[in-house]
């Protein structure tokens, strides 16, 4: 097979410039070139879109940084864009996004990984036939629906807990359950499909012989899963986590409904605002510097996503070297 490949490649290369075996006429060659041009153009459209978005985000996001001052913006804690003396501190907003994402990963990843293990290692065919479509369905549900469920189920429940915990508190602002925990719970459910699908694929990719060797050495099934299979699928599972982070950090529609959306320190029972929800909720009527600052929040979010992508590329490259 390996010997055949180069020959095949040579054939396919020459066929674009030479005449086709299907026809003796020249127009086939022209068609080949035209289509190659079309394919290249389609390929470049994605690159062009990324480049355009990057340039646009930088152009529209940076002016406000210079007007407000980068330290004042990133480390300021007061967000009062329409006040007589406006203040554009987004420290709490950034912090909320980081903490909210980390918390949802802490909750979502173990559940997702265990589900993936269940589906690839434990489940009988019939059980897997129920679980797998369910997970796929979970991935297909629009994010706003998650938000509505959070609004109808999680928020009232949180409201009752809040009433018990903070009934005598002087400083706590009662928010009826629209708090960080609600948002984190919604987010951790939302990242499940990503985590499950990617880690299941990587678990299935671990060769059967590796498991058999472990079992033959006398390890139990559980020992094999935790000591052999999961470590062998490590790079895929890390990819799953990073993709989950990406999903959580970029989600807006679901959590805008459940998080309360006021700028506060991200404590569990505080009403909080994420980077995404900050943009969503204020873009409608914002003008002037306020609007420009919202673009800067978008830029911060963009940088976050870029970092996550660089990390994921780094991991994937590292994983290839290990193999």
């Amino acid at each position: 097979m390996e010997k055949v490949l180069p020959i095949l490649k040579r054939i396919s290369k020459s066929s674009s410039s030479d005449r086709s075996i299907m026809s003796g006429k020249g127009y086939v060659s022209f068609m080949e070139q035209l289509m190659e041009c079309v394919f290249t153009l389609c390929g470049l459209s994605a690159v062009a879109a990324v480049a355009a978005i990057t340039i646009y985000m930088i152009i529209s996001g940076t002016p406000a940084i210079f007007k407000v001052g980068i330290t004042e913006m990133l480390f300021g804690t007061v967000w009062a864009p329409t006040a007589a003396e406006p203040s554009f501190g987004i420290a709490y907003i950034v912090l909320t996004s980081i903490i909210g994402t980390v918390m949802s990963i802490v909750i979502g990843v173990p559940i997702g990984l265990m589900t993936a293990v269940f589906m690839s290692e434990m489940a009988e065919k019939r059980t897997a036939a129920i679980v797998k479509p369910a997970v796929e369905l979970l991935a297909g549900i629009p994010s706003i629906v998650y938000g509505l469920l959070g609004l109808l189920i999680i928020n009232p429940a949180m409201g009752r807990i809040e009433k018990i915990l903070f009934s005598n508190s002087e400083n706590h602002v009662m928010n009826g359950g629209a708090n960080l925990i609600s948002a984190v719970l919604v987010l951790s459910i939302m990242i499940l499909p990503t985590v499950i699908n990617v880690s299941e694929t990587s678990l299935r990719a671990v060769p059967l012989s590796v498991r058999q060797a472990s079992l033959a050495l006398g390890a139990t099934k559980i020992q094999t899963i935790f000591r052999v299979t999961i470590p062998a699928a490590k790079s895929g599972i890390i990819t799953a986590v990073v993709l989950g982070v990406g999903r959580a950090v970029g989600e807006a529609m679901a959590i805008v409904l459940v998080s309360g959306n006021t700028v506060n320190i991200p404590l569990p029972f505080n009403s909080v605002r994420f980077l995404t929800t900050g943009i969503v909720s204020e873009m409608g009527y914002a003008s002037g510097l306020h609007r420009e600052t919202l673009f800067t929040i978008g830029l911060v979010l963009f940088v976050f996503i870029m970092i996550i992508n660089i990390v994921i590329n780094f991991i994937l490259e590292g994983g290839d070297k290990n193999e």
Binding site: P81, V173, V256, S271, S281
Partner: peptide
């Protein structure tokens, strides 16, 4: 309502409590 909303501006202006409000939830519609 969220900052920038006309209703919020009017409400706070009429009561004379501009930028002094302590909201539990800010909602954008």
């Amino acid at each position: 309502r969220e900052a920038g909303s006309g209703t919020r501006g009017a409400f706070e202006e009429i009561l004379g409590i501009e930028d002094k409000c302590v909201y539990a939830q800010e909602i954008n519609s």
